[in-house]
Simulated scan of single mutants.
Amino acid sequence: MRDRFFLWFGSAFAAFGLLFAGVGGWMLFDDLDFQKDALHARGTVVDLEQRTSDDGYVYAPIVEWRDQNGTPQRFVGGVGSNPAAYDRGEAVDVTYHRGLPGQARVDSFTERHMGPAIFGGMGSLFAIVGLTLVVLHLRRRRTIASLKSAGMPIQAKFLSCQIDRSTTINGRHPYRVSAQATHPTTGKLHRFDSDYIWVDLSDSLNGKPVRVLCDPTDPEDYFVDLSDYVEED
C-alpha cells in the first residue's frame, strides 16, 4: 500500500508540477514574444488600484503614458503588492504593442518575470518530488521482484505488529511487522521490518515464523513476505 501510495501521489505531484512548469514556460514565452516587437516609452504612476487578495488588499499601479503618436494611454499593471511597489508620481518604463498601444506592460522584473519564476520554480520542485516518489516506487517493486525470484528465504521470529504513527496516509496510520533472525551472510542477529500494511496481524502471527527473503550480498536488502496474510499491491 505504501508503494502504491508513492506511485499515485508521486504521479499526481509530478503531473501537477509539470502543469505549473508549463504555465510558467508559457508565461515566459508570451513575454518574450511580446517584447520582440514592442515599443518603449516612459510613463507615470498616476494612481493605485486596490484589489482583494487572500491576505487582504494589494495595490497595482495605474500608469499613464504617450504612444509614438503622442496619444495619451492608460493601463493597470498586472501585478499587485502590499505594500505598493510604486508611489504616485513615480516614473516607470513601459513597453507596448506596436499596433495596439492599449496592450502595454510595466517593463520591470516583477511585472515580467515574477509570474514565470513562481510557476516555473514551484512546478519544477513539485515535478522533482513527484518523480522521485515514482522512482522510489519502481525501484522498490524491482527489488521485491528480484528477491522473490532469487532471494534467500529465512524463517524469522515474530516480534510485533505495531502502528507506525510517524506516517499518515489518507488520515490513517499503517502497521509494520517486525521480526528477527540470524542473517545467513553476516551471522548476526538482524531485525526485519515489513512494508506498510493496513491490518493488525498480531494474532495471526503470534508464535509463528515470519518468512523473509534476503539478498545474500546485501544484509540491508530484504523483503518481509506477508502474502499469506495480506493482499499484495
Score class of each variant (00 low, 15 high):
F6V: 00
L7E: 05
F20S: 11
A21M: 11
G22K: 03
G22R: 11
G24V: 08
M27G: 04
Q35I: 00
A38I: 08
L39Y: 10
H40P: 02
G43E: 11
V45P: 11
E49Y: 07
T52W: 12
T52R: 14
S53D: 12
D54Q: 09
G56A: 13
P72L: 07
R74K: 15
F75L: 04
G77Q: 08
N82A: 14
P83R: 08
P83Y: 13
D87F: 09
V94I: 15
L100K: 13
A104P: 07
R112F: 10
R112L: 13
M114W: 09
P116C: 11
G120F: 07
F126A: 12
A127H: 08
G130T: 01
L131D: 02
T132C: 10
V134F: 01
L136D: 04
H137A: 14
H137V: 10
R141I: 12
A145F: 03
P153I: 07
P153K: 14
I154T: 04
Q155S: 06
Q155A: 02
F158Y: 10
S160V: 11
R165N: 14
I169Y: 05
N170H: 09
S178K: 14
A179E: 00
Q180G: 01
H183A: 09
L189Q: 07
V199F: 04
L201K: 00
N206D: 04
K208A: 05
V210P: 03
D215M: 03
D215G: 07
P219N: 09
Y222R: 01
Y222H: 02
S227H: 05
S227C: 04
E231N: 09
